[in-house]
Amino acid sequence: MLQVTALQKSFDGFMAVSDAHLHAAQGEITAVIGPNGAGKTTLFHLITGQITPDRGSIRFKDKDIVSLPPYAICRLGISRSYQVVNVFDRLDVFENVRVAVLSRQRRSFNLFANARRMAVKETREILQTVGLGDKAGRISGTLSHGDRKVLEIAVALGNRPELLILDEPTAGMSPEETEIVLQLMRRLRSEMGITLVFCEHDMEMVFTLADQIMVMQHGRTLIQDRPDAVRNHPEVRAAYLGDDEC
């Protein structure tokens, strides 16, 4: 479904991503791991078009998406959440998701209809799915950190994506909240058939959830394989996981 090959990007001479490879198959959960500064977030920015790569190819459903603007990539079916919460702070929770739904329905240019009556059902369903149904009326800027992270995902779901990219979806969450997100990600795959790509520092979560793991270091892809293969890969053990962790 997603095929990233030999991707490269530098900022002012600093090579953030030098040789990244990633493939995600339909219906699978792929995790990207690597130490801080390995280029994971840059890779996600590149895939979603927020920045343009210097070299390499990104194909989604056999279509070249390099140099498409972010909104066009989103319309092809790729949504994402952000590591640092990135929602619409002055809108309420319901409106946050509704904006995404309206965008997907191509109704954002409608100037005269009453938005309050639109996209209600779908928005409500999404909020139910992620468990924010009872907080629909809250201004999103006033939510707790955990709820805001979940809202991140809910907004991304508003686009009804085929591929969902989650940048550290559980960062800063309590163990209980993490468990909820974990369950949610499983359900997104099984019930809605969404292909997931995520990056995470919580190795336990990565190895229980992912079908495939891609390891990045210094902007390069070391390996992408099944979790057990990654776990036993000598270079990964040496470079990143540390023997004691397995």
Binding site: P70, C74, R75, S108, L111, N159
Partner: peptide
């Protein structure tokens, strides 16, 4: 007033709050 309450107006307010995210949810800012 109607325009502000319309889907366009709502999207416009979302652009105000966060143009980067708006692009990411498929809005041509």
């Amino acid at each position: 007033y109607r325009i502000i309450r319309s889907p366009f107006g709502m999207t416009f307010q979302a652009v105000r709050d966060n143009p980067v995210r708006c692009e990411a949810i498929g809005v041509n800012v």
